[in-house]
């Protein structure tokens, strides 16, 4: 494991447009150079726990933060969050939940499960950009968890 191979951001997002917008936002703040984008929950868990297609990875080589979309087909964000936060090897990874609505009843559930923060994906691109990059910066730079 070297600092060079460590993924800084794991983005789990099934909507390709949202993913592109998110990556663009992070790019503008120079945060996206070590970013992995996965399109569903199963892939995300395989990645984090070094299973299946990612069995070559090491679990201890955790991403610095996970940006997790809640609403995904098949395995949704809640389930991914639950598994990550209930395993002592991965529970310290900061998870930022991405949601479409402030009114989402799942937000409370996410906090209960140990989510560190949430971002409402606003329609307005600028706001989205700011929110994502600020939060990304916050968790990556200021609130860096002990490894």
């Amino acid at each position: 494991m070297s600092m060079n191979t460590q993924v800084e951001i794991l983005l789990v997002e099934d909507n390709m447009s949202d993913a592109e917008l998110t990556i663009r936002a992070l790019n503008k703040k120079n945060l996206a150079n070590k970013l992995v984008h996965l399109e569903n929950g199963q892939q995300a868990l395989d990645f984090v726990f070094a299973r299946g297609n990612y069995s070559h990875r090491i679990i201890a080589d955790t991403p610095k933060i996970i940006l997790l979309d809640l609403k995904m087909p098949k395995m949704d964000g809640i389930q991914v969050l639950k598994e990550i936060k209930s395993d002592h090897r991965t529970q310290k990874i900061p998870v930022i939940v991405l949601t479409s609505s402030r009114e989402d009843p799942d937000i409370q559930e996410c906090y209960r499960l140990g989510a560190n923060s949430y971002v409402v994906k606003p329609v307005e691109f600028d706001k989205f950009l700011n929110a994502v990059s600020e939060l990304g910066l916050f968790w990556m730079l200021i609130n860096q968890p002990p490894v």
Binding site: N15, S17, K71, S100, E103, K121, V123, F125
Partner: peptide
């Protein structure tokens, strides 16, 4: 109904976000 409302709001927003975002791009 509540679940439906959230789901609708979620699903309606995603394309809007794309329209707005890509127009800005």
């Amino acid at each position: 109904l509540e679940a439906f409302t959230y789901s609708v709001s979620h699903d309606l927003r995603a394309p809007l976000r794309a329209i707005n975002g890509y127009a800005q791009m």
